[in-house]
Structures are given as structure tokens and as C-alpha cells.
Design a protein around this nucleic acid. Sequence first.
RNA 1: GCCGACGUGGCGGAAUGGUAGACGCAGCAGACUUAAAAUCUGCUUUUGGGUUCCCAAAGUGCGGGUUCGAGUCCCGCCGUCGGCACCA
Length: 853
Amino acid sequence: MSERRKQFPFDTFEPKWQAHWEARKTFSVPNPGEPGFDPARPKYYVLDMFPYPSGAGLHVGHPEGYTATDIITRYKRQRGCNVLHPMGWDAFGLPAEEHARKTGEHPRINTENNVNNFRRQLKRLGFAYDWDREVNTTDPDYVRWTQWIFLQLYHSYVDETTGRARPIAELEARGLSRDEIDARRLAYVAEAPVNWCPDLGTVLANEEVEEWRAKGHAVERRPLKQWMLRITAYAQRLIDELDGLDWPEGIKLLQKNWIGRSEGAEVDFTIGGETVTVFTTRPDTLFGATYMVLAPEHPLVDKITTPEQRDAVEAYRKVCAAKSDLERTELAKEKTGVFTGGTATNPVNGEAIPVWIADYVMMSYGTGAIMAVPAHDERDFEFAKQYGIPVIEVVKAPEGNTDTCFTGNGIAIHSGFLDGLPTPEAKAKIITWLEEKGLGKKTVNFKLRDWLFSRQRYWGEPFPIIWKEGRHEAIADSELPLLAPELDDYKPSGSPEPILSKATAWVDLGNGVTRETNTMPQWAGSCWYYLRYCDARNAERFISSEAEAYWLGKNGNPGGVDLYVGGTEHAVLHLLYARFWHKVLHDLGHVTTPEPFQKLVNQGLILGEDGQKMSKSRGNVVNPDDVVEEYGADALRLYEMFMGPLEQVKPWSMKGVEGVYRFLARVWRLVFETNQEGEWSRRAAVADVEPSKATNKVVHATIKKVGDDIEAMSFNTAIAQMMVCTNELTGLDPVPVRSIDLLLRVLNPFAPHLTEELHAHLAAAFPDAVPAAELASLDWPAYDESCLVEDELEIVIQVNGKVRDKMTVPREATKEQVEAQALARERVQEHTAGLTVRKVIVVPGRLVNVVAN
RNA sequence: GCCGACGUGGCGGAAUGGUAGACGCAGCAGACUUAAAAUCUGCUUUUGGGUUCCCAAAGUGCGGGUUCGAGUCCCGCCGUCGGCACCA
């Protein structure tokens, strides 16, 4: 294919303009106080989710979102904004470490190579990034501030009365003990079960377990000391404060469901002399509780188990302990459990009910204990059937209910003082009753767990923490960044001990003082990179307050970044984690807004030509480098946008790329023609003539539609309109140079190289008609409303809703005139012959519908 | 199972409740050419009828409804994709 002659010389002018922008720093934007900063212009912050620079390089999914934000960037600049549009690298991660493990080479080297390749690929696409603000999460200068933010969390707690983070120093001033303080830090240490994979010599994140197990590696559960971040303290705010954000409703819902708020009550049961608290969302069904279940790990299990049951209970607990949460749910086709021998007393009626342990109850949610109401809970019902436990109906289902186990709202029955009450009232009444008797209270629970923040890897940020006499302690800010030591090799240690523990000289600080050897997860760097871009080279602070206030500051919205574009795969975790960090920084006075991202757009996945997900094994991966080679960067950009709506999943098509390539070639040929030798020269037809009314109409309609469509991020329809405009101009001779230039100006954000090149030629040839300045520095053109209005309008005439005729009427024709004219039409007469006209609907400027029967 | 998104030509897709199929791909025909490619012009939802162009009927996953008028709004299904999955 590459021997085929190029339809326009993109291979020479694309690199030329890229070099021009780079040399001139066209898209660098100064901060307040810096030379060239224009405070009169409004700010606009456009952010891409920064990539992990993998060894495979860019794939065509990357430029989808990047082109969309690039168009917005160039458009907003032309609209007079100071636009911040940066790029960087989420460069910590397991693949670089795996590579280091195999080669013995420091992961930094491989990471740097990959970053260089990604940067080269992105620059080839002509994106308007401010490369002066590039960040890399693995740079010591960046790591320093990631660690600093971690220490902010470490040195903070959440004040329960205000729900805000406060400095830990306040607790010290109040004289709390070290243990009490440590128990309240936002970053704390806990014993947590981890997924240890002996073959890989590493601990895996929950979401990685399945993948490696499928490849035949064993993954075990092991309790290990872990750093946790107290995100649960922000659960309610993370739900509530979604309200002010311009995010897709589906994504908000995803986050809400992930956080999983549920209202209910805690109720105290007694077992012998012990009190066991259960959590339930249906306290109104308390009279229907026929047994109780404790999680197998529940601390009271030992105490209440009778000697006869002890062996069975112990055996069951052992089986459960070996299973991960995943297995526990995955293998749960049938419910299992063991009777403990103990009985609990139902506080509401004094009845004794048996106490079981079962792994369908989890220690990590609620209180790790439930009251089981098999009549009104599917799981309890299933379990009760399995073990022959009685079912007592306490909620009368509405008429017509056929479920054997009714879980909806109804009327309370067999429930003493609750009888006759609808479910919501019954809930309220029983809660009041429980609270009065001191037997329970209203409670809210969240599914969200605290964030397990430590990894046992090398290629991540070390914790800025040392251990003294069994206690953790922060190192001083002045010692940051704390970098991981060089290792002789990056092979696993063979135990769940972090790899860094092999660096004994680094770990051992003498006098029994040692360094923390865990590292932070990849999420850490991506939690705050959007902040660093605002002030990427600041050596004194993670972001200056001036830069923060300007780029992320209040414009009446809670979110700082004006537009954030990225894939749905980050809909929950990344966005939740970043929001959490941002709120902590906000509480502590480091950032002005409560939310990081005001508007979020998720670009849809691009599939292979076969309609399948792109993957190496399927052999359907499209490499952007190849596309640029053959069709140019503008064609790739344009095709990515022309495929369909940005948010939609859509398959790649090389034929489609050729289509937009042909379109760009048509635009080129508006200005240039070629001779036998393949040399390009300006067409004689291009002239500074007055455009016709029809030409003006198309051109100005295009300016209007493209502007509107960019604002709505409906790029595919904007391109369609520019194709219409080009088709119109193609047929003209002479072709008005001013019209061509207007087309170039609206096409510029989409195809910046081609348009700059043509514009430069036209400006040189027609200095009186075409502005000399390059398009990147020209304002977005205004459209002339008067060009859009027609003197005559085409009106569709329907009879009984079916189109039967069309006519043209003067623009100023009245409804009555239009109606009369329509009724007089021959075709209307034919179709209403023998019928009586009952009604005539006239939609001004559009249609007439004659209703007759 | 629960939650969410989406179903329109051969394909990607367009359509403030007002001409369904813009624009592009693929296909067909013509022009240019010794020829091909490229380019340019035209046609292209289906079916039926007259035949350079027009007429009629059907048509936006399926079945109902609201409306003068529904791809669009409402109700009930079916299908595809994504997320969650014993969270009491």
C-alpha cells in the first residue's frame, strides 16, 4: 500500500507543523504571574486520563479520547480561553517490574524507554499538549509529593461531628494516647488477609486473583500487616457530593452502588451472658427471626459453641478460612453452615432461637452477625430449607404475590405491637421501641471497605515510614522523596515479605529502627496527577495556592477540572480514590474545591474490524503508527471522531479511515491540483470572488453547526457537516477563497496540520482576503445569521399523517395563507376526495397536516 | 438474580414529537484514460405498478397505548453489551 501515491503530502507538512508548534511552544500556557499570562481570559482545564506506558505502545483506543479533548482544547483556545491541556505517565506498575525481574535491569530503564515511545507516538498525532507540564509518577520529584500527601493522610483524622479531616495534632493536644490516636488516623496499619501467590512471589490485588489462577498459579489467603486508608469515613460524602457533578448518571449510580449505603438497625440479642449485635435492614421482621447466623470468624463463636458441636464448628471454620471472598461467593451454589449448639434470645419476644455459623455471612460487613428471617429474605429462606429451620411469615404480601419468599413491603402480621402497620411505619416503630429499651438503634452501613493501600512490590512509592519499638513513625518532610534502593536482582524473596526487605542496608537504620518495606499501589500516583499539572515544576509545594486557585478554582462548580475524558474501566476505583484524596486535601485547606472533576465523559471502547475486543491473540490490533504512516495523523484523528458517538462502543474499519482520508484529500484539492509529475500547484479556480448566496448559506450553517456540535461533543455530526460543505465547494468554479478559509478554520481543531498548511498558502496568495496569522492563534469565526435564513421555505404537506406533497412558501407567509395554499393543492384534493376535512395542523416553516375522513 | 446502556439499510451511523435513513463505507452505472488506479457525476430501504421519471404499500427488535402525527413519549415482552453479585 505504501507505494501508492499519497493523495496529499501529509508526510511532509505534518512533521513540519508539529516541529513548528514545538519550537514556538504554541500550546504552552503560562500560570498566573508568569510572563505572557492573560488574566482577562477565562480558564478551561481539559484532562485526559493519563496512560500506563506499556511496552506495546499506543493502541487506537488511546487517540479516541485524546482527539476529543484535543478538539475541545483547540476550540476553547479559539474561543478565548486559557486552556490547560497536559499529558503525563502513570508509570509505576507490575509489567515494568516483571521485565526487571527477567532481565535484571532496573525498571526505571524499561519505563523510560516506554515513555519515550509513547511520547513520540502522541507527538506524531499533533496533540496540543503543554509538554512543559509533563509529569511522570515515577520521577523522584513526583514521588516526593505522593509521599507528602500520604503523610497528610497519616497525620489526619476525621472529626465525627463535622465529617471533615483534621490534623492529628489536635488529638495529641487533647491528650489522647498513642494507641487511641493510631486508631483514628486516615492511614493506619491493620492485619488484613492478602492474596499471596507463591509462584509469582507477590501479593495480588483482589481483581487480579482470578486472572492468575486461570493461568494455573495457586493463590493463598494470608494475614499480613497492611496499610489501610480510611476511605469509609468519607462514604456518605462520596455519595452526596456526586450531586453537583456533570457526570453520566450511570457512572454516578455505579459509584453509589459500589459504596452501597443501606439504612437499617442494629439489634442486640443475648446468648447466655453475651450480647451479640446484628445488623438488619428489616427490623420490622424481628418477630419472624427463627435463627441467627454468625460469620465463621466472629469472635464470639468460641464462647458460645457447645462441647458437642465444637469439632464440627472447628472443621467448618478451617474450610472457610482457606477460601477467599471470591471463592466463598463463587462456590456458593448451596448454602452451608454448622449449628453452634448455642441459642440466642430474641429481644422482642424472648424466644430462644438457634445460633449457626455460615459463610454466607461475612465478618467484614455490618456486625458479622445476622438475625435470619427466612420468610422474608431469599438467602435465609434457602438456608432454612436446607437445614429444616422453621419459617414464620410476619409480613403480609399485597394481593397477587406469588413469591414463596416475599421480600417486598407489606403489612406486618404475627408481630405483636407492629401488626397492621405497613413496612415503612413498622420499621420506624420498632426502631423507636428498640432505642427506648436500649436494645438497638438506627444504623447506616456501607459496602465500601477501607482501602488496602500496601503492596509488596518494588516498582512503587516506598512508604515514608520507619518502625521504632514496634511502632510506626513518619519520616520528616525534608527527607522526601524516599526512594527505593537499587537491588542486585528483582526476583521475589520467596515469602510474603515485601521485596524491599531484601535491601537490608536500606531497611536497617540501626538501634532496632527499620524502614517500612511495603510500597504504594499504582493508584497512588493517579490520585493527584491532575493537581500537579497545574504547577508541575514547583519545588516548594505539590501545587502553589495561586496555580490551584486559578486552574481548579471556583467557577460556581464543585469540581475543579472542567472536562475529564477517559474509559469506563476507571468508573469506580480510580475516580473514587481520587475524589477521596481530593476531599482530604480540601478539608485540610490545600485545595479550594470539594471535588476534582466537574464534567466526566467516558469514551467507548474501539473494537477490532471483526467486532471483537482488540487483542494480540486475536490478531485484530490496529497500530496507530501504521495508520499515520499510510493516511496521516489528520486522517487518523478525523476517523476516530467520525466513527460514531464518542461514548459508544464501535468497531474499527480501515475502509472508514480511507473515507475520511478521501475527504481530507478533497479539501486539499479545493486549493491544489497536481500535474503529470505529481507536483502540486494552486488551482486557478481559487479566487477572491464574492460567494453566492447558496455558498454562503452552506458555509455559515457549517460554522454554526460545527461550533454547536463541538460544544455538545458530537464530533461525528460536525464532520458530516464539513463534508457537506466541502462537497458544495468542490463543484464551484471560481471557488471563493474566503469560503474555503472559513471551512479551514472550523476544520482546524479536527485536522490541524492540513488546515494550517492550506491556510498558510491561501494567506500568502490572497493577503487581502485571508488573515496572515496561523489558525491556532485566530479566533473561532462568527457565523452570519442573515446567511442562514431563506426567502422561501419548503413545506411538507401530509394528509392524515402521510406525506403527499411539498410546496414552497414565502418566509413571511401567515399560517392562514399556508393552510389555504396547501388545501388548494391538486394532490391534496386527490387524497381528500370524498372525505371531509376535519382539521388542518400547520407547523410554521415545516409542515401542514390535513386531517380528513 | 439485581442495576445500567443499547436495538434504525449490506455495514458505521443521522434525525428539537413533524419529509426516517444526513454523512461515510460497500455496491451499481456513466465520464476521463490505450488501459487500470485515482478523480468526477449519478443511482442505491424493501415490495409492487407504470418506465429517463413518477405512483402506491410496507418499514426504526416484538406486542399494545397516547397523539392530527411516534425511531423519539408511556406500558409489557425479547435480544445484545457492560457493571455488581450471598453486603443481611
